[in-house]
Design a binder for these strands. Structure first.
Lengths: 260, 260
DNA sequence: CGCTAGATTGATGGAGATCAAATCTTGTGG
DNA sequence: CCACAAGATTTGATCTCCATCAATCTAGCG
């Protein structure tokens, strides 16, 4: 998602580019251990607590010292893998999928640059879901035991981790509300507005963006079938709320969408 | 729930009672500052990490030094209240309810003795939902800032809080799966088996228990109407999977229920 | 011991699932 | 760089599960 949006940002501001590129694309796919630096990362406002000192950033950079590239369709981790690390997305996007014994599958979330993956693995010491890349992506690897050690004497970081986990609980609560009480139309509207808000928070257009997930994945996230998702997109188009052309979406009337 | 179950346990084992009473019922409703002691609490296996030393328990007892009684139907806290503390249930049970601007209401969970409330308040510094007592209940008050301080130099406790929060994320994931993919029949079966498992973990009967919530509250938790909940109870009764008489439920065939 | 909130059961309708078919993307290999 | 196959999307027709409306019935509580 941010790859498309970043090139778009470059077109909007031809010179000099005002938007800091989200990440340095590894030169080769084999690059696994370049040196990420939280202190200079464009996403630090999203994944780090505010107001860290130079010294504190240095300690973090010592822990978060490797990245990993994942090809579209590949898994960053799978359910039941041993839990070692959490991950923040530098570039790209993911879906997290839980699979019931009987084969029922459900997408529990879509994550984009700046979001964190793997917090659900802490409880059992093993991953609880599959994390699948929706496009070629890069993540920072954060070994959790080392992070815990850092948190023990870095109060802002300690509090930040609690906040991140708590935010995830809140996000899931509102997703339960969506799944438990909303009509298909309201769910799709809510989904588009949520994505829009998150892109905006990352400096991208809130009005137009590329969906990296299929209608089926959206449906699986929203608790409905892909045909229903498609019908809702068409309905919004007829009502001039949204212009959708395949995976490109432009929100024409955000207030109208919110009133649905 | 545990009040009923505890008196039941007393009947089952007339003398000497083998089941440790879950809590000391406060003598008067006004009792707000008796001295809870984690070290001797029957629920410590559920709310505390294993293997703490006497010294470590003493430090916790210094932080968790007050309780609060909440009458049936009253709120422990409401959405938008300032977040100060988290709570563990000593006795009784609660529901947590999120309310959308437009009035849509959804029950995000039912909590019983040993469960923790309020973790979702950390992220925004204010409560995210209403916590309503389903019966007269007692909670331990854990001031969060003090807990954070303790966690900074008590590694097992630090890890335990991360685990608790992560467990909540996992619990909500599986509730999303339920809401997103299961039929009404499967949701009710899943709900009963989950309650059964939790009662069992607390030393109560897994087969027979009292529901403290109404059919409407169950429906609101499972994303269906109260009539549908009632019909599913009747259906299970016809199929000899469950015997339900109002709020008393006896699971007759747990395997059958799991196969639904 | 009577009242009222909660629970059950039946009849009917509608939102969304399912099945089907045509059209459109996309990415992969030549 | 282009063609083509596999997958994704759209749209229509029909069916089903659950919501809704309605009428008792029950039990817990003051």
């Amino acid at each position: 998602m941010q790859v498309a949006a970043a090139s778009q940002a470059r077109h909007d501001a031809p010179r000099p580019p005002r938007v800091v590129p989200i990440h340095i694309v590894p030169r080769t796919a084999a690059t696994r251990h370049d040196l990420p630096r939280c202190s200079t990362c464009a996403m630090r406002a999203i994944c780090m607590p505010p107001g860290l000192t130079t010294d504190q950033f240095a300690r973090l950079d010592a822990v978060i010292c490797s990245t990993r590239s994942i090809k579209r369709g590949d898994a960053l981790y799978r359910a039941a893998d041993a839990f070692q690390s959490i991950y923040t997305i530098r570039a790209g996007s993911f879906k997290t999928v839980v699979i019931h014994r009987d084969g029922r599958e459900h997408v529990t979330g879509f994550q984009i640059a700046g979001d964190t993956l793997g917090l659900d693995g802490i409880s059992a010491g093993k991953q609880n879901c599959d994390a699948i890349a929706l496009e070629d992506s890069v993540v920072c690897i954060i070994p959790f035991a080392q992070l815990e050690a850092v948190c023990r004497d870095m109060k802002p970081m300690q509090h930040h981790i609690y906040q991140m986990m708590s935010s995830e609980i809140v996000r899931e609560s509102s997703q339960m509300l969506l799944l438990g009480t909303m009509t298909a139309e309201q769910r799709v509207a809510s989904f588009l507005l949520n994505l829009s808000k998150r892109f905006k928070a990352r400096g991208f257009s809130a009005a137009e963006f590329h969906l990296r997930m299929t209608r089926e994945e959206i449906g699986c996230f929203l608790g409905m079938k892909l045909e229903t998702v498609s019908r809702m997109f068409s309905k919004f188009q007829r009502e001039r709320l949204v212009h959708a052309n395949g995976k490109t979406v432009r929100i024409e009337d955000a207030e109208g969408l919110a009133r649905v």
